[in-house]
Nucleic acid binder design. Sequence first.
DNA 1: GGGTTAACCTGCGGGC
DNA 2: TGCCCGCAGGTTAACC
Length: 285
Amino acid sequence: MPELPEVETVRRGLTERALNREIAHVQVLHPRVIRNHPGNSKDFVSYLIGNKFTTVKRRGKFLWIPFEDKALVIHLGMSGQCLMVDQASPSGKHQRARFRFKDGADDLIFVDQRTFGGMQIVDLVTDIHGELVPLAVTNIALDPLDKRFDLTVFSKALRARDTEIKRALLNQKLISGIGNIYADEALWMAKIHPQTHTQDITATQARKLLLAVTDILTQAIKVGGTTFDGMYLKVNGESGKYAPSLEVYGQKGQKCSRCTNLIQKVRFMNRYSHLCLNCQKAPRR
DNA sequence: GGGTTAACCTGCGGGC
DNA sequence: TGCCCGCAGGTTAACC
C-alpha cells in the first residue's frame, strides 16, 4: 500500500518523466477521482490545460504540483498508481484519469482499483512552517524525513496523547507518511508493543522509535518502496523491492529474525498488527 | 477538543 | 459452479 517510500518513489518518477511538459488534454474517467476537488470535472480539466509540471512536491503521503496560485494535489489512497504509458495504450478497467501532453510523447494515467485515491486542485496557502502548501496539506504534520521534523516536539506531543503508540504513529496529524506496514516494521525494530500507551513511552524509546522509522523509510525509498499485492507500482510500471526486507508485516507464522519466536498477526483498529510477542512485550496496563 | 469507530471501495480467496 | 463473506487499509465524518 502506498506509504511515504512509495509516494516518494512516485514523486521521483514524475519528476523524471513529466517535468516541464505542457498539459494539452485531461480526461476524468471516474467521478470519484475528483470527489475532493472543490469544483466540478470541467473546472478541474480547464485549470490544468496549458499548465506545466515545474516541480513535484511531497509531504507524508500527499503529492502536489504547484502552479501559480493553486496546486494539483494527488493522494494514492490504497491502490492508486501514477503511470507513464504510451499514448496508444488502451484505457484499462481501473484507469480513473489521463493526462496528455503537448509534446505528443507518453501519457500520465492515474489508475486506482479501490478508488480511495484522488486528485484535487486547491489554493496554495502559507502553513505554520512558513511554506507555501496546498490547503489540503495544512492539517497534516511534517513527515520524519523532513529536515524540520523535531524529535523533541514529537516526543512531547506523543506523551501528551492519551492513546496507544501504534494509533499515534498512524495519526497523520502527529507524524505523517506512516501506514500499517511501516508502523509494524518500526515498532518491531524499536521493540515496542503496538498497544503500549503513549504516556508510558520514555524519551529514549521515542528516540529509538523515530530512528527506526527514519531508517526503515530511508531503506525502503532506496529500493523503490514495497509492492505487496500489486496495489503499488513505480511510475515506469516496475515493482518496489522492499518486500523481502519486511521483518513482521505479512510474516505471520515465520520465525522472528531476532529471537526465532513466531510472528503473530493480531486484530487492531479494524485491521491487523504484526509483531513478535517475545521482542515486543505486551504493556501491563 | 480529543479519541474511537465505521463507512467508503473493489478484487480475490476460502468456505459452503 | 455460484454465492456469500472476510480481508486488504488511508482518510474522514460522525459519534462519544
